[in-house]
Nucleic acid binder design. Structure first.
Lengths: 203, 203
DNA sequence: CTCCTTTCTTCACCGCTGATGAAGTTCAAG
DNA sequence: CTTGAACTTCATCAGCGGTGAAGAAAGGAG
């Protein structure tokens, strides 16, 4: 059984670009609503009024469709630059503000990446890890220059990761419904402490 | 095709308890290694040398098997009690130590919960949220008594969640391979600050 | 206009998954 | 010995991600 009721007329009857766009729109909506695992390729195809094979024709695989739907490239990088451009002073606030504002603005789409493909387990984990290492850890470490810079960068990552998961994935209150300013004023100093304070307690 | 090579002899040839235990052992090992989505019921059955239908006979569904395999009940609660028993002083260190030691000891089994069942999306999320609210947030809030207690409790949750995700899921270095003591000495004061410090910056 | 190639579209499959129902076997109690 | 519950197997289901072939429309070349 196919997923359309049209007169079963194969061949070219729309431009490829239009079909591709319909698929992308449907995919974005469904991924956002049901997550990666909760969305089937067939459902996307049905919503786009298209044969499911077309999804694979255009995007190769479900992962490819997902990647295209969230266009996970070069969206944060410019913002990240401005974080580190102004040095250590107030960098905590800038980090929190950039993180929250960016994710809020993007309709939390890329977060579905954490709602993972299941079987390709380690793959997406190492993807996230590499991204974090490349964009955050390295810069923080060089900016600090102290011997425990790596650990401090790790602590910053914990803050960012924890805030993201709490606000967007698990939705813990009152974090999930707080304003950006409130989060910045609360977590900014905390991140700052991770970097500048001598926060190691003697054993 | 079935997943065994025995002489195809149906009927009772082992005690139910033994089969159930074999299934549970196999499930724990496979869930731990491949996560929820990466483990198939058939694979569990094969590892337990049992027909896949038996898994459903005993546990009803894959979710039921998973729930039974991680016996997600009454494992942390006693430890949680002792955290709050000694008051605010040093509670940050106790939290971090309890969290990390418990998860390390349990072979990170319950963490597979975050490697989620995909389709039952919101369900497992609200499960986690309710657990956190019930065990952590409430106690912290009553222990503090300040007007911003709820937010401070939320900040603590961010710390715990972030540390857990960073260390066990995404495995960010050097967090993932740090010793318990190092984590306690670094994150303990941070958690303590969330609770006791006047960490709100004026807007 | 015809032919041919490329692009788009459909359809019939494949192996796999989680899950169900019936039937058969074994065992203990009445 | 009979009966009924507990246990096991098997055949089967619908749905999944994904593939390959083949058909239909459009465009360029002659």
């Amino acid at each position: 059984m196919t997923e359309h009721s049209s007169p079963a007329r194969p061949g070219r009857w729309r431009t490829g670009a239009e079909s591709k766009q319909r698929i992308l729109d449907a995919a974005r909506a469904l991924f956002r609503e049901h997550g990666y695992g909760g969305t089937t390729v067939r459902a996307v195809a049905a919503a786009a009024e298209v044969d499911s094979a077309m999804v694979f024709y255009f995007f190769g695989s479900k992962q490819g469709l997902f990647a295209a739907a969230v266009e996970m490239s070069a969206q944060l990088p410019p913002a990240i630059e401005s974080i580190f451009a102004d040095g250590l002073d107030g960098i905590g606030e800038r980090m929190i503000r950039t993180l929250v504002e960016t994710i809020d603005a993007s309709g939390r789409t890329p977060l579905a990446m954490l709602t993972r493909p299941a079987r390709t387990n380690d793959q997406s984990e190492t993807l996230i890890r590499e991204y974090i290492d490349r964009e955050i850890t390295g810069r923080v470490a060089t900016l600090l220059g102290t011997p425990d810079a790596a650990f401090r960068a790790g602590m910053v990552n914990v803050q960012l990761l924890g805030l993201t998961v709490a606000r967007y994935i698990v939705r813990i209150e009152p974090i999930a419904s707080s304003s950006v300013d409130e989060l910045v004023s609360r977590f900014g100093p905390l991140v700052q402490d991770c970097l500048t304070e001598s926060n190691q307690k003697v054993l």
